[in-house]
Nucleic acid binder design. Structure first.
Length: 420
DNA sequence: TCTGGGGTCCTAGGACCC
DNA sequence: TCTGGGGTCCTAGGACCC
């Protein structure tokens, strides 16, 4: 048995922890830039608000008081997520944190008959100690555990925990699960499935293996097996991320190269900082620009360029310098840019960086590494006190709309004092 | 007027080699 | 003027996830 613990409507639930008066009300949390809906309370779901709805389409509901909207407050969500995860980690032999609001529990060594009780206790404890409602789905595979957690979430009778432990329960669940709700069947595949006459997860597992593998490849086959209780999705044991990306949409469109350079410098500096935090270094820096794809009346341009570093690096100096070089090569005047980003990849542990035969600047690089270390130390308060001259003053997220952000309840004492 | 951000994996096709 | 076959590796793009 594997358990999936899933926080219910996570971002909305986080906002409610400090605003209990929002309980029972229609609430949404918005993406960066207050762009679109990324989390909904049950009440706002019931109003017909879909995931990803652009905020301007529902703003009137906020204005007339029937809906409450929050800008996203990732410092708060990350902190509450850590608290939930540590309770889980203290309870079972091993957990696998899958996303900010989900974790798998590996239950080896725990007798089957004790599992449901333990999970119920977890639901109660997390609600009591952190204030976040969670659901637990138990099943033999991850894909089935996901389905199981849907049932736990939707039907009150389960009291937060659904266990799929017999063939009979599994078949019943598959028949009740529309194919587009299956983990691994996405936007593109769902309509195809319908064309093939597959409406439910049950219909899917009735197809022969050959039929599945020829049309859907190894991924589809994996999902098909998982739905039948055969474990195929392995644990993600890679510690090191393979790519790190920092990107933002701008509140306004930007045409000016100088202004764009400031933004890209900031994104690159954040990438460098993230690399250092994980003890990694990158060998490739990619910069991309987007014009506003929703504006049919404007000319579009989506350039991107990757530049190799001679030697893998993580200093702010190297990453920013390379990103600015790339930007210079792809920037074209006459376009209104809405978004930009920096991706660092070809990631290696920073203590095993392979020097290059043509590494004439080793001394300079070591200096820059020391300088970055000092910057990290000084900036550890979370604000960019020390930055390169090519970066902007202020925070890198400035120029991003965030009209309805809640206070940093759990992570910034200053702000709480300021608010109250 | 206003439409998010950050990841992973697979696959097809091109480059290159013998 | 004529111009193979098979393998590996890399990359870009597309699918998926939250």
């Amino acid at each position: 048995m594997i358990a999936l613990v899933d926080c219910n409507n996570f971002f909305v639930s986080c906002e409610r922890v400090f605003r209990p008066d929002l309980e029972g009300k229609a609430v949404v949390v918005l993406s960066n830039n207050d762009g679109c809906v990324v989390s909904r309370s049950n009440e706002s779901k019931a109003m017909g608000i879909r995931m990803g709805t652009p905020f301007f389409q529902i703003r009137h509901l906020v204005d007339n008081g029937s809906l409450k909207a929050y800008s996203s407050n990732y410092a708060l969500y990350g902190d509450l997520s850590d608290r939930v995860m540590s309770i889980l980690a203290d309870t079972v032999p091993r957990i696998e944190v899958y996303s900010i609001d989900e974790a798998y529990l590996h239950l080896e060594g725990i007798p089957d008959e004790k599992i449901p009780v333990m999970c119920r206790e977890l639901v109660v404890k997390i609600r009591k100690w952190v204030g976040i409602p969670v659901s637990v789905g138990l099943a033999p595979t991850k894909t089935l555990a996901k389905i199981s957690s849907h049932f736990a979430k939707r039907h009150k009778g389960y009291r937060g925990v659904c266990m799929m432990d017999t063939e009979e329960k599994m078949l019943k669940a598959l028949k009740l699960t529309p194919i587009d709700e299956v983990w691994g069947i996405g936007r593109k595949l769902a309509p195809k499935m319908k064309d093939w006459g597959i409406a439910t997860a049950y219909d899917f597992v009735q197809r022969p293996e050959e039929w599945v593998s020829s049309r859907l490849g190894v991924n589809g086959l994996r999902t098909w097996k998982e739905l039948q209780g055969i474990e195929c999705i392995e644990e993600e044991n890679e510690q090191r991320r393979k790519t790190i990306c920092t990107s933002r949409s701008f509140a306004d469109m930007i045409e000016d190269e100088q202004e764009l350079s400031l933004r890209v410098s900031d994104f690159a500096a954040v990438c460098a900082q993230k690399l250092r935090k994980e003890g990694s270094a990158a060998g490739l820096v990619t910069v991309f620009l987007y014009t506003n794809r929703f504006r049919d009346d404007l000319v579009q341009y989506f350039p991107s360029l990757s530049l190799k570093l001679g030697v893998a690096a993580n200093s702010t100096h190297d990453i920013v310098g390379t990103a600015l070089k790339a930007l210079k090569l792809i920037y074209r005047s006459g376009y209104k840019y809405k978004k930009a980003g920096v991706i660092v990849s070809d990631i290696v542990p920073s203590d095993s960086v392979q020097g290059s035969l043509f590494d004439f600047d080793e001394e300079l690089r070591q200096k820059m590494d020391r300088l970055s270390a000092v910057m990290d130390e000084v900036n550890s308060s979370g604000t960019s006190v020390l930055r390169l001259a090519s970066q902007r003053s202020g925070h890198y997220a400035d120029g991003i709309r965030s009209e309805f952000r809640s206070p940093l309840y759990t992570t910034s004492l200053d702000e709480i004092i300021e608010v109250h």
